[in-house]
Amino acid sequence: MASETKLSHTAAIILQALDAGFVYGFSIMEMTGLPSGTVYPAMRRLERDELIRSQWERQSIADAEQRPARKYYKLTAAGKTTLQVSRKRYPLLERMVPSEEAKSV
């Protein structure tokens, strides 16, 4: 995916949330306030465009915490470049989803 890819505002917020450390769908929903019908399809498209990639959590970790394993999402190199471009396009992006909040979750 070329670095000059122009993302929609919603897709840019999701990328920013992922970069801030919100790495699964429900946490992004909570952080951004977007509904599930928006967040998950957007993540499918971002994954198709190779801006993010997904990875299943190890089952042993989930078992230890007595919960189902989750699917985590992570920015790719192309995704990081695109996010940089998007931050210039949407200057308020970083203020909407600050990185510090993720650390406290």
Partner: peptide, 14 residues
């Protein structure tokens, strides 16, 4: 329930 209904949109998208 609203969360689950969002699954339909995701399924269509996929």
């Amino acid at each position: 329930t609203a969360f689950c209904l969002g699954a339909f949109q995701d399924a269509c998208c996929l």
